[in-house]
Design a protein around this nucleic acid. Structure first.
Lengths: 146, 146
DNA sequence: TAATTTAGTTTGAACTTCAAAATATCTAAT
DNA sequence: ATTAGATATTTTGAAGTTCAAACTAAATTA
């Protein structure tokens, strides 16, 4: 059916990704978690970087440190993180996840995995190594290029 | 190299997508356009729906009509859209793009196309019909399912 | 005509973001 | 040791983004 790569990728970029975020946000809401997807992404970033300083987290998220400060203020307020300054270099601030944050992330990850698994299964992508390798290449491309 | 489909798709979803939006936002800024990517998406949605009423545009964007009202207020303010009520049903409001909006969209589309083309070329995806068909399937899946 | 439905706007509150200014701490150079 | 500069973070002000709920206006239905 001679699909145009550009058109397909565009559609994915402007429609599908947004929709997935909407679905995940809706799910959080349904689970009674009053966090936005943005706030969940902050929690995920805290998990991923080492050490979890403001600068490292902000770089991971590609936002300014000032932006992150306000986000962390809210998350501390809501009981999802704590701050502690580095004893070796007191300018640095470490951010830690609370038990509540870990529980929320677990639930969110489970939902996310279920959704992705359903897509993979419904579309028979499991055995499609060509697709997976290409997508991996795209990820690596962006990691290295920008 | 036995890539895990779930892991690859996750990475794409949480990192690559955000990064592309950041790059496009940066480019707009560099071109001297003081619109956010969100505002550009509103302009794109206006272009795509027919007729371009508030409800149709909001549905396309998956936001409430109230949210769209405030977005359109800003875009009218900045000179990117105009409002006109339907003469047949005066409850309905049509939203039109101005010349300035069309010019901005043209420039943004060109940049977006260049970026996508560069990725396709750099990664040799052009001939990869398996990839493109799979991605198309993913798009269709979301269009029909949700 | 009255009641209901539909289309959109307004409002209040919370969240998101950045740039620029301010604060605090550390490091390097004198 | 003092000073100057660099680094890490927070604060502030302004503009955007979003939703739910209350509101207005116009069309439809009973």
């Amino acid at each position: 059916m001679a699909l145009k790569p550009k058109k397909v990728i565009n559609e994915l970029l402007v429609e599908v990704f947004n929709q997935i975020l909407n679905i995940e946000q809706q799910k959080l809401h349904d689970m009674g978690v009053s966090l936005s997807m943005n706030e969940v992404h902050v929690l995920e970033a805290i998990e991923k970087v080492d050490p979890p300083t403001m600068s490292n987290i902000a770089r991971k998220l590609r936002v300014t440190v000032g932006t992150l400060t306000t986000a962390i203020n809210r998350l501390v307020e809501k009981g999802y993180c704590t701050r502690a300054s580095d004893q070796a270099d007191r300018r640095k601030v470490f951010v830690y996840l609370t038990h509540q944050a870990n529980e929320t992330l677990k639930k969110h990850d489970a939902f996310h995995d279920d959704m992705i698994n359903a897509i993979i299964e419904d579309l028979n992508l499991e055995e499609n190594t060509v697709l997976i390798e290409s997508l991996h290449k795209v990820s690596e491309y962006f990691k290295n290029k920008y």
